[in-house]
């Protein structure tokens, strides 16, 4: 057929891929303070002197007061579940994350359920989203008390905060 494309009723589909290339985002160094805290098993939040809110993980500015949240507060490792989701049992071939199958790579066991939760840590005014571990899915409820599950050897990375577990 050469350059003559297969006929469709009125148009043709033009195939193409689009890898638009690399971006160079500018990140704030706030996260560095947060992970340094994690290394010492401490949860650092940003504190707004205007409205007194404490946000975990720390955010740079307070929209309510329109000011930089330049002060920090350490909040408790314990908190309350404000919201949760229970996924169906995970199976092979259902989900791809960063191009890999988490069940196939063993990150998640076949049939395991994942429970993303919002936790309001004592002393904070924000929901921190994480996962609930070491729990019977049937026992999860809003208002459940939980504590942070730390990595055995914290490295100063976000993954030091593995999730939360029931108190």
């Amino acid at each position: 057929m050469g350059y003559v494309k297969e006929e469709r009723p009125t148009t043709i589909s033009v195939e193409g891929t689009w890898n638009i290339g690399s971006y160079h985002y500018k990140g704030s160094k706030l996260m560095e303070e947060y992970v340094k805290g994690l290394k010492q098993k401490k949860l650092i939040g940003s504190f707004c002197p205007g409205c007194g809110k404490v946000i975990v993980p720390p955010r740079n500015l307070c929209g309510r007061c329109h000011r930089i949240m330049d002060r920090r507060k350490i909040v408790s490792n314990r908190g309350t579940i404000t919201c949760f989701i229970v996924t169906p049992p995970m199976e092979k071939g259902k989900l791809k994350v960063l191009g890999m199958d988490p069940v196939e790579t063993g990150l998640i066991k076949e049939g395991e359920v994942v429970i993303p939760v919002f936790v309001k840590f004592d002393g904070s005014d924000s929901n921190t989203d994480t996962i609930l571990l070491n729990v019977d899915p049937k026992a999860v409820h809003i208002g459940m008390r939980v504590k942070v599950l730390w990595a055995k050897e914290p490295q100063g990375a976000l993954s030091d905060f593995e999730g939360v577990e029931p108190v």
């Binding site: 996260m31 947060y34 992970v35 996924t87 988490p102 990150l107 998640i108 994942v114 996962i131 593995e162």
Partner: peptide
């Protein structure tokens, strides 16, 4: 900053 993979899977 070393985001936990399991957290990412949950999301």
């Amino acid at each position: 900053y070393g985001l936990s993979l399991k957290n990412l899977v949950a999301t």
